[in-house]
Design a protein around this nucleic acid. Structure first.
Lengths: 141, 141
DNA sequence: ATTTGTGCAAATCGTTTGCATCTGA
DNA sequence: TCAGATGCAAACGATTTGCACAAAT
């Protein structure tokens, strides 16, 4: 008996997960499609959870957290820390920076080639620079 | 009857608090002395609480939180967000940046004139740049 | 069949809040 | 005196954990 035919998007997502060393389960496939479906996105665990529920994808919050962390470890997502007590994830894993509005929490990407940072000093012995993070914090004019 | 003579350091601290519009209470004076006593410091609510207890200053954790926020509002401290779920405060309120070791949580100042950031784009309509925050994240070499 | 992932609920962590009591001017 | 500050304990929100069950290889 032949396997049931899966939509092309799922096949691609599945391949992507396998490459990342993650077993392609229902939930991971569904979340990956929501996350990487179109364009760069910023999500929090809560926002992704809500979105999943609305999209009719039955996932528990615990699995959302697991998945976000696994994807991050696998290099599919990047974490952004903007305020204590809330964690954002960015589907854009390339080098880029952010505008962040303290007033309303809005978050925009700044393409990686726009801002340049110079003069970063030598890190202390035994340490290497992992990432230079730039957040441009905005306030109402 | 004459007032009991206060140590010079307390007098200075008291003056400083008054200037900031904060009533110089026992706790605020004690915490201010711990914070601004010598050199720049990075503290979390928990670390300052522990330190206070060890120094024999009886303060509640709630007061630590109140005080840190009041000092921040008064411009005596600057908040630093490095990881979700933990809030750091820096006694250096001038423009400067940070080295942050993801491995052990170590945090060092980078003087304000060392790193230069150029190419920050125009903020969206109605917004102004409040602060450009740079965190150099380190990993073990 | 075995390994790995998932869901649920309880537990944890940092932080905030409500309110009675205390303190500084 | 009395507005403002403090302490305590309970409340909170985001995240993590433990464990029984389910699904993928």
């Amino acid at each position: 008996m032949r396997k049931k035919k899966a939509p092309l998007a799922d096949t691609l997502t599945t391949a992507r997960l396998k490459v990342a060393g993650l077993r392609p389960t229902r939930q991971r496939i569904a979340l990956a499609r929501l996350l990487f479906g179109r364009g760069n996105r910023h999500v929090s665990a809560e926002s992704l959870y809500d979105e999943s529920v609305k999209a009719g994808v039955p996932v528990s919050l615990a699995t959302i957290y697991n998945t976000l962390h696994q994807f991050t470890r696998a290099g599919l997502l990047q974490q952004i820390v903007l305020e204590p007590g809330r964690n954002y994830f960015d589907t854009n894993t390339g080098e880029h920076q952010h505008f962040y509005s303290e007033d309303d929490g809005a978050l925009f990407d700044i393409p990686g080639d726009v801002i340049s940072v110079s003069g970063v000093p030598e890190p202390p012995r035994g340490m290497a620079v992992d990432r230079v993070e730039v957040v441009v914090r905005l306030k109402r004019a």
